[in-house]
Simulated scan of single mutants.
Amino acid sequence: MGDALLAENGRPAYIHGQAPAKALDSLKQATAIPIAFFAFNHPVHRLFEIATKRPAHLIEQLWSIRMSSYVRSAAYAASQVLAAQGLTVKRSHLSEVIAALLGYRTHAALAVEETDVSLDYHLDDAEVLVLNQTMGEARAEQLGLPAAGVAVPDVMTACIDALKAHAGSVGVYVSVADFYESHASQALAEAIYNDDDVAGAMAESNASFPDEPEMDIECPSTTDLWAAVSEWAIEADGVMTGEYDLEGDRMFNGDTLNCRGRLLYSKAGRAGLVLIEASGMAGADDSWRDLDREDELAYLQSLERPATL
């Protein structure tokens, strides 16, 4: 994971239309990797041939190799952890499980999608990764790991830990609920608190709001993250409670705002997300007016009652 090989506004700068020699030279200058690396080193020992025959796809080929390298590195790390526990699992099987955790039915499907230049983002662009444990567990079952004496939970733990360890600065979450609890709820609270429309609602209330809203504890329902093609969003409600200066001259007209925040992401692969927009909205909670009316009615009724001796 990390920056693209040829970065331009965070995305790979492709070199379509360049002559083979110029394409390879551009690649060498951009990556500072010796030319011999591209000609001879595995797994890119055929890239020189690819460059001379299909320069338009050179970067796309490297893009796929980069993500595949991330998966292979994680699979190797997971295999070492399992081996230390006396469990032998083929690295090819672990690569399949990791691909499933990333939302793909097979590792081959991941590799194919990584070379699709029609997509705005790929897994390597992800700011966060939200894993699909259900798919990962199902893939481990399909590969016959339990029948071979390897418990699925042990495989999941090893693969997830390896993905986190090799993801660099990218946040890795084991589920949408984990993503919400560990990251999105705070991001939503900040989006609400910093929204201009919410600032207007704060000003109208006559109260001061020093703190961000308290967001719902329970993870909100969302569309299927891993099935979403181009965009995915998560929304949640919260409550912001303000403060009044009891010695001040500002009339009380409510100190609670009902809030809602929304985070909109571009998909980066099946499990990856890139934040596009964070927004919020808020409206006054006027339930205090009903309480005031109830108190006033109770007071008037008390005046109508005959005095008791």
Results as ranks from 00 to 15, higher is better:
193 Y>N: 15
255 D>C: 09
168 G>Y: 02
269 G>F: 07
252 F>S: 05
261 G>D: 07
135 M>C: 00
246 L>R: 12
199 A>N: 10
144 G>K: 06
187 A>R: 14
141 E>D: 12
155 V>G: 07
269 G>H: 07
160 I>Q: 09
254 G>S: 03
193 Y>M: 09
182 S>I: 00
179 F>K: 02
144 G>C: 05
209 F>H: 06
277 E>Y: 03
163 L>N: 03
235 E>K: 14
172 V>T: 02
143 L>M: 11
205 S>K: 09
140 A>M: 09
256 T>M: 02
180 Y>R: 04
274 V>E: 04
256 T>C: 03
219 C>H: 04
226 W>C: 01
220 P>W: 13
188 L>W: 02
238 G>R: 04
276 I>A: 07
265 Y>F: 15
219 C>R: 13
180 Y>E: 04
160 I>W: 00
204 E>D: 15
149 G>Y: 10
201 A>I: 05
263 L>F: 04
208 S>H: 00
274 V>D: 08
158 A>P: 04
182 S>G: 06
268 A>F: 12
177 A>H: 03
225 L>C: 13
153 P>N: 07
216 D>G: 11
273 L>E: 03
228 A>C: 11
269 G>W: 07
205 S>T: 06
179 F>L: 13
159 C>F: 02
257 L>M: 04
170 V>F: 01
221 S>M: 13
275 L>M: 11
221 S>I: 14
267 K>G: 07
173 Y>H: 13
146 P>Q: 07
261 G>M: 10
245 D>W: 04
268 A>K: 09
214 E>G: 04
204 E>G: 12
207 A>N: 05
160 I>M: 13
225 L>E: 06
141 E>N: 13
273 L>K: 03
265 Y>L: 05
208 S>A: 14
184 A>Q: 08
249 D>G: 00
249 D>E: 13
173 Y>E: 02
167 A>Q: 00
197 D>C: 01
236 A>Y: 02
146 P>E: 07
223 T>M: 12
